[in-house]
Design a binder for these strands. Structure first.
Lengths: 110, 110
DNA sequence: CTAACATACATAAGAAAATTATGTATATAT
DNA sequence: ATATATACATAATTTTCTTATGTATGTTAG
């Protein structure tokens, strides 16, 4: 697994991107989806995920909806209107960041 | 300027990469080179840079050599043998990270 | 001639975002 | 019975940065 330290700062953007694609997701589902998408390269820990979801909710970017499935609690998150707008801008920033880093570490492919 | 928060965790790798290319550099020079390389997109602050250089030195990845130029102090840093090895592995991690993030935010180009 | 800007180092206080370690609870498989 | 998977949560600590400040010299613009 790669250097987890590098992912510092990108968790919120990852969550927002997944919710843009999937309409609504719950926390555990997000961790599994990311693991699957990255072939196990990135493992989001619960200690990072849940506080991040709570912060996005507190910032008005996500709405939450509680459900019971198979006698277990689930909290489904979805983008608010504001969250949808913010996702567009966060993704633009992320792509700019990726281009910039590519320029630095691999100038020939920039 | 992009979201500086995304760069969290990549400063050491940036420094190591520049030193791999330039043999020896001093702190201020690094900030200017990065600004130039990224068209002003990334501005490394002194509060981040100097502690990072000191840490890399303390970890044995950099050697330092003091010089006076134009009546001003300069501290030239260069990779140690260990630092050269570590740079290779840090760059591999960085490229894996960039590919992974690209996969997540832009699946169609993965 | 003086004020601003550039060069060049440094550190301290605080914030942000993770890691690591726990904790609760249910369901399933060995 | 025990481990693993599902599903949430938080607290203590660490890492890494931002912001603010400090010292000092050289150059440029008004």
């Amino acid at each position: 697994m790669g250097n987890q330290k590098l992912y510092k700062g990108s968790l919120q953007t990852i969550i927002l991107k997944l919710l843009e694609e999937n309409d609504k997701m719950y926390g555990y589902e997000i961790t599994q989806r990311v693991k699957e998408l990255t072939n196990g390269n990135l493992q989001i820990t619960e200690g990072a995920l849940y506080p991040a979801l709570h912060k996005l909710e507190a910032d008005g970017l996500l709405d939450v909806e509680v459900a019971m499935v198979d006698n277990r609690l689930r909290k489904y998150y979805k983008l608010t209107e504001n969250g949808t707008k913010e996702t567009v801008s966060r993704l633009a920033e992320m792509e700019e960041f990726l281009r910039t880093m590519q320029t630095i570490v691999n100038p020939k492919f920039a």
